[in-house]
Structures are given as structure tokens and as C-alpha cells.
């Protein structure tokens, strides 16, 4: 039986791990290589490493640091940050990445999703979607590039272009640690058949209870709970196991 995935997400600013709150006020958290080593020793299901400022600062992710992070990991790793060309993806795969996470390129040049998934296979291409409710109560894609599209339309679009996974971030709940946006997740799930990683809001174990009881969530990504509390991915799995969800312990 396929197990529910609990995925730590490491966000990086180019030289240090950071954690944002509602996508701003990044707080510095130290060395990504050390963090990756700890997660590997804890046997986590997967790891996602994102340079969240690469696109905005018009630079490429630091390959040396990415390689050092991946070298710690004997589980799958997804890498994101400024990836916009086939050669960028080749660079990532060459040093051992399993997936790449596209965000800015997926928004500004959606055809790149098709180009890259045709070349590397859908399983290699995750698309990160930042969703926020607009004034009319409709979930839309949050971005600084002026692209105006609803969350549902964008998810269907990236699926049709060949994305293999959606990493769905709630902007409102990012770093707030007060629970997940289950409504958003349920809405997104209805419009797509590819796996979704639900991200944003986990701060207590009961938040994961709520998420998995009220949705058919198959994967959750978290950062703050691991940085700012004593809880480990194991504690979350233990919670899910009690709910009767399949987990790998």
C-alpha cells in the first residue's frame, strides 16, 4: 500500500536556511547541509530544498551547496529555485536530484513544463503553486509577476502540460503554525489527478489530524514545525498511524 508522505521542506536564501511567515520576514535558521544530514538520519520520506530568492534575484541556485545537501540524502530530493532551462534541470539530475520544483518558470513560461516533462518525464517535474484567496473568495495564484489566474485553472493547466506533482502552498498559513487550509486542499484535489503535496500551517500534531481527517491528502510538506518545535517527522507519522493512515515507520 502506498504510504502517506511526510516531507520536510528546507527554504534557503542563497547562503542560509530561512523560514518565512506569510511569505515575508524570513528568519535565519542555519546550515542546510547539517539539516539534510539530520533528516536523512531520521529516515524521512523525502526532502524538498528550495532557494526561494533565486528567481527574484535573477540568479541560479548554488550547485555546490545543492550537491552537498543531496550528498547527505539516501532518500528522494526535490530541488527548486530559479530553474528555467533544460540545462538547469540536467545540472540538478547530474548531482543526484530526483525532481525539480518549478514555480516562476511555470508561471511565466508554462510551455517549459511541457518541454521539460517531455524530456525528463512527468515524474521529474513538480510545480509549486502559491495560492491565496482573492476578495471574491476565489483561490488564485499569488505571484509578483502580475499573472492573473485562479488556482484551479492553473493546476489543470500544469497537469495538462505534463507536471507530475503539485506542491500547493497556502500563502495565508505559511509559517503561522495554526493549521492547514483544508478547504483549499479539497478544492484543488477535485480538479487534478496528479499527487498534491499540501503545505502551510502545521504547528501542532492535531493540525495533521485535522488535515488527514478532513481531506484525502496523500502528502504533506512542513518546515516550521520541525524548526520551531520538538516534533519530528516521526511524531507526525505516529499521529497518522493512529488515524489509520498508511505510513512508513
Amino acid at each position: 500500500m502506498l504510504k502517506t508522505r511526510i516531507i520536510p521542506i528546507l527554504t534557503f536564501n542563497g547562503w542560509s536556511l530561512v523560514k518565512t511567515k506569510r511569505f515575508s520576514t524570513p528568519r535565519m535558521l542555519g546550515n542546510p547541509v547539517q539539516a539534510a544530514r539530520v533528516y536523512n538520519s531520521r529516515g524521512v520520506d523525502e526532502l524538498i530544498f528550495l532557494d526561494i530568492f533565486a528567481s527574484k534575484q535573477k540568479r541560479k541556485i548554488n550547485l555546490k551547496i545543492v550537491k552537498d545537501v543531496i550528498d547527505q540524502c539516501f532518500m528522494p530530493v526535490g530541488i527548486g529555485g530559479g530553474i528555467s532551462t533544460i540545462s538547469d534541470i540536467k545540472d540538478m539530475l547530474k548531482i543526484g536530484a530526483d525532481k525539480v520544483v518549478l514555480k516562476t518558470a511555470a508561471l511565466l513560461n508554462p510551455d517549459f513544463i511541457k518541454e521539460s516533462s517531455d524530456f525528463f518525464g512527468s515524474q521529474c517535474i513538480s510545480v509549486s503553486v502559491d495560492a491565496v484567496k482573492n476578495n471574491n473568495g476565489i483561490y488564485t495564484v499569488y505571484n509578483e509577476w502580475g499573472v492573473n489566474i485562479t488556482m484551479n485553472d492553473f493546476i489543470q493547466k500544469v497537469q495538462n502540460l505534463g507536471a507530475g506533482e503539485i506542491i500547493l502552498n497556502s500563502v495565508e498559513n505559511d509559517g503561522v503554525m495554526e493549521g492547514f487550509d483544508r478547504v483549499m486542499y479539497n478544492e484543488a484535489q477535485k480538479v487534478t489527478n496528479i499527487p498534491i503535496v499540501c503545505v502551510g500551517g502545521g504547528g501542532e500534531l492535531f493540525h495533521y489530524d485535522e488535515l488527514f481527517a478532513e481531506t484525502n491528502c496523500e502528502a504533506v510538506g512542513s518546515a516550521s514545525i520541525f524548526h520551531f518545535t520538538q516534533y519530528t517527522p516521526f511524531d507526525i507519522k505516529d499521529t497518522l498511524k493512529r488515524l489509520g493512515k498508511p505510513v512508513r515507520i
Binding site: 502506498l2 504510504k3 523525502e46 532518500m75 528522494p76 515524474q123 507530475g164 506533482e165
Partner: peptide, 28 residues
């Protein structure tokens, strides 16, 4: 689809993979 994540494999006696019957591996 894709089938993505950790899943357990099933193997029967006398096969190489029998040692790993019901063990989890990463699929994508």
C-alpha cells in the same frame, strides 16, 4: 498518476526479492 512515494513490494519464495517481501521502497 504518477505512482509516487513509498510502497511495499510482494514477492514469493525462492526469489531474490523474497528477502524484501512487504518492505517499503521508493517508487516514482
Amino acid at each position: 498518476v504518477p505512482h509516487l512515494g513509498w510502497n511495499s513490494i510482494t514477492s514469493s519464495a525462492n526469489l531474490f526479492f523474497d528477502n524484501f517481501n512487504q518492505k517499503d521502497f521508493y517508487f516514482i
